[in-house]
Design a protein around this nucleic acid. Structure first.
Length: 259
DNA sequence: AAACATAGCAACCGCATTTCC
DNA sequence: GGGAAATGCGGTTGCTATGTT
């Protein structure tokens, strides 16, 4: 294939776009669309190459672009998908309406990469703690549905939702609760005393009952170094924490007197 | 206040893939 | 079916804002 001459050789402009250029591009696309990027700049009267116009439109001028900080939910989705897909930014962007691959890529390099590095360090350090909760990711990440459409299950605050499994881990007793628990962190707002969850979990949820100080946490198991706290600062026990998360995820008030 | 370092991000580059003729 | 053109994608660069010394 013969490579098209670069912008400079054609006397085309490079570098940051001006407001005037943006306006011209927007006006042209609004009127004529962008069926042919290569022809567009000439037709619109822009001294830019088609590639530059496309990039500017896709990454900045599109009306459906979502600007501003990434929400916790978006950050988690990026982390989950990156763990599964790697640097396939466009594939990740496809799961985040309004976010561009370029924006996600930048955000990853400037924010999330550090968090992953820190988390790995933390997981390593966590092996010295007692009774860490662990998760086993089973299948590929999926876009989490964070709407509160779950029905509040019947439960007793004294009842343990965990059942023993032959593997030595404790498993959450039914699929609906697993699903709710998996999505718990997306409901957290200011209710959870924890950092946003960053690990890849999307299958059954397990809680270790047999890990001790000497055991190293290895993938696919993950440390959960967080918890839920009462207003007085006391940490909830495991059962209470579980039901609290289920309850809030299902639409219950975080301040419900039951907790 | 100035110099320097770092972070954040828009934009570019070159290769890969898809579409068109 | 094959080559050229167009588009898409991911890595990288470089400018600007902000923080630190």
């Amino acid at each position: 294939m013969v490579r098209a001459p670069c912008c400079e050789k054609l006397g085309l402009k490079k570098g940051p776009w001006t407001t005037e250029e943006d306006e011209i591009l927007i006006a042209y696309i609004n009127k004529h669309g962008h069926s042919n990027w290569r022809a567009l700049p000439k037709l619109a009267g822009l001294l830019r190459c088609g590639k530059s116009c496309r990039l500017r439109w896709i990454n900045y001028l599109r009306p459906d672009i979502k600007r501003g900080n990434f929400t916790l939910e978006e950050q988690d989705i990026v982390l989950h998908l990156h763990e599964k897909l790697g640097n396939r930014w466009s594939a990740i962007a496809a799961q985040l309406p309004g976010r561009t691959d370029n924006e996600i890529k930048n955000f990853w390099h400037t924010h999330l990469k550090k968090r992953v590095t820190n988390k790995q360090t933390h997981v390593h350090a966590k092996k010295k703690s007692t009774d860490p909760a662990v998760f086993e990711p089973k299948s590929q990440p999926q876009k989490l549905d964070c709407s509160n459409h779950y029905e509040i299950p019947s439960f007793s605050l004294d009842h343990s939702p965990f059942t023993d499994s032959p593997t030595g881990y404790k498993e959450i007793e039914n699929e609906q609760n697993v699903e709710i628990f998996e999505a718990f962190h997306h409901t957290c707002g200011g209710h959870w005393a924890e950092e946003p969850w960053t690990d890849n979990f999307n299958g059954s949820l397990f809680k270790s009952s047999e890990m001790n100080d000497e055991e190293e946490i290895q993938p696919p198991y993950r440390a959960m170094d967080s918890g839920c706290y009462y207003n007085n600062g006391t940490k909830m026990d495991d059962n209470m924490e579980f039901w609290y998360r289920v309850f809030v995820k299902a639409g219950g008030s975080p301040n419900d007197p039951a907790f």
